[in-house]
Nucleic acid binder design. Sequence first.
DNA 1: GTCTATAGTAAGATAGAC
DNA 2: GTCTATCTTACTATAGAC
Lengths: 193, 193
Amino acid sequence: MARPPAAREKILAAYCAIVSSEGERAATLEATAARAGVSKGGLLYHFKSKDALADGVLDGLRQAAEADLDRMRQSPEGPSRYFVRTSVETGTELDTFFVVVMRLAAGQHPGAAEALAAVHGSWWQLIREEVGDDAVADAIMLLGDGMYHHAAMPGSSAPGSTAGYFRGRLDAVLDQVDELRALARSRTSPDAG
Amino acid sequence: MARPPAAREKILAAYCAIVSSEGERAATLEATAARAGVSKGGLLYHFKSKDALADGVLDGLRQAAEADLDRMRQSPEGPSRYFVRTSVETGTELDTFFVVVMRLAAGQHPGAAEALAAVHGSWWQLIREEVGDDAVADAIMLLGDGMYHHAAMPGSSAPGSTAGYFRGRLDAVLDQVDELRALARSRTSPDAG
DNA sequence: GTCTATAGTAAGATAGAC
DNA sequence: GTCTATCTTACTATAGAC
């Protein structure tokens, strides 16, 4: 909070935009600075090194994930449906950070894999609490991860909208979620109402 | 066929190994040559440029995918179960190529995204033929993709073995596949035996 | 806080010996 | 077919002016 400098935010956003659309390799200091509208020296005033830039993204992911977790918790449709439905949303703040951190993890950036695992673990826990069954929680996570896998797959993402592959299919997948939730209910209370 | 030079294969394997374990950026010509046991010049005799090296991987994926498709087609358990079961296998020839091509696609390598989409489309078609229902074919693919997403997620892969996250959970997911197949049968022939 | 200029390094690729 | 030596380019990072 405390309103960080606007330039810093612009630089971070520029870096994320390049990494997710053209790959980590294309996100050089010069390219990032140019897109943010500053010079190389200007960028390096806010981020001492390229690693510091990547660390800034890790922090961004943690914050965006926390905010998303709150929405997921308070969602009227329940965490499971919320998770699967939002897993195909591309272009959101959380998705942007998530994609970038995945790329960083692929490049062995320290802490990136751990940050991803932490976010994923939080999602699982919320779903597990809702459905009350490990296997069903796993299956629901897999549906969401599978859809995310497509949405994030290079070539299929269309920033700001649901990925083309799943337009019209999301409803069917959400039905599967409902069926899985019902299955979990019948397992945990086979004789209760 | 016609037995390509052994050095060529070693170079391609070295490149794949570095890309998947340390990221595309670490797979420099020098690092690749060193791991393959040749010099930079020796490498460049077999692959004229770095792009040629990447193109070699695309060819490798196409060949490995074709072989896998045959096995999937002839699998006694059926394409669906075969697909989901093998989606967590890391370290196979197909998986190695697939991971590398995903990294190349993330870096906007020409043809990489298309190659992935082609492989994925072939898998879907086989499953669609088996289950006879679009939505169920989608859901099964999602389970497999979701598991693959985990298995391929940096930090969780353990070459040569099933990813740790799903040890013991695969059976539960395969049960979900069976339930989905049954669901498809009840849809396509609601009154037949 | 942002710029230009530049040092230092590492990468991809070529040439020619063996 | 494989090597060493070298050229060229591009990237990270520093220094110091404004």
